[in-house]
Design a binder for these strands. Structure first.
Length: 275
DNA sequence: CCCCAGGAGACTC
DNA sequence: GAGTCTCATGGG
């Protein structure tokens, strides 16, 4: 699929792409895209942006987005050909069914820091509360941003965050996760943006050294923050899917180098297409 | 009252 | 290395 770009002032039109924004924003990978009528309002890269599905593609609107085309092509992962994954799922009926239902999903290339913080919050939590806690964090420590009457807040950098004790984070109501966050916020000189130098095993090992990051969260961070497509996070939903449709002794490595993307199809199908 | 949520850490054996 | 227990918080 050869995506074509057209720009207008404060707008990019992505034509001829298979990406479906509904499925992409609703598969649990991101927490700051919210539906409002027939469009999605998101906060990405300290900017309020609006995405809208159109025939054969989607549009993106926001202050000066037309000056950052490469950033947005990368963010929405528009250069990767998702249809090549069909060959990896074809022999697994439930995976194939999930692929057909969710093949408009793209793995967003999100900011590693934002992903690390967000998925520490996600542990043993539900998506609604995760979004609420992240929003409170942004309101307190992020910069106020506006676009066309919409007011929101950027995701705070580590230096924006001034919390010095767990009491300072009590307003989040994040439960026992507050002490993991505090420890992370206090470690100001850890450069997560350099973690791309690690191979998959090394990256996983480094992430697991951080308190609050276990195997599942580490795999989410690798997949969503570092584009490691083979990372396969196993949460309660996926464990149920594996047990029901693949058998208990199934090894996800059988799914190949794009196992993580397939995992998103499975998660999306389990959450959005079952009772 | 119970159970659950995109689990992890500490502890036991 | 594999099983348990506990850890806040809020919704159903």
């Amino acid at each position: 699929m050869r995506t074509t770009i057209e720009t207008k002032k404060d707008q990019i039109i992505f034509n001829n792409t298979d990406m479906i924004i509904d499925d992409t924003f609703n598969c649990g990978q991101c927490f700051r895209w919210n539906k409002s009528e027939d469009e999605y309002v998101g906060v990405v890269n300290s900017k309020i942006v609006i995405a809208k599905q159109i025939e054969n593609g989607f549009t993106l609107e926001g202050d000066h987005v037309d000056n950052d085309i490469d950033f947005w092509i990368n963010y929405f992962d528009l250069k990767f050909n998702y249809s090549i994954i069909e060959k990896d799922v074809i022999k697994y009926p439930y995976a194939y069914e999930s692929y057909i239902k969710g093949k408009g999903i793209h793995i967003l290339k999100q900011d590693p820091w934002e992903v690390i913080v967000s998925f520490i919050i996600s542990a043993n939590n539900n998506i609604g509360r995760i979004k609420g806690i992240i929003e409170k964090l942004c309101e307190r420590y992020g910069k106020e941003i506006r676009y066309k009457g919409i007011t929101s807040h950027s995701f705070p950098s580590v230096n924006d965050i001034t919390a010095a004790s767990v009491e300072d984070l009590q307003f989040l109501h994040s439960g026992y996760r507050d002490k993991y966050l505090l420890r992370l916020f206090n470690n100001k000189d850890m450069d997560f943006y350099s973690f791309n130098k690690y191979n998959d095993d090394e990256l996983c090992k480094e992430l697991l050294k951080i308190k609050g990051i276990g195997p599942k969260v580490a795999n989410c961070i690798m997949l969503f923050g570092f584009s490691r497509y083979s990372s396969f996070p196993k949460d309660v939903w996926i464990k149920r899917v594996i047990q029901e449709h693949f058998g208990n002794d199934f090894d996800e490595r059988e799914l190949g180098q794009y196992a993580g993307i397939i995992q998103q199809y499975l998660f999306h199908n389990a959450r959005n297409h079952s009772k």
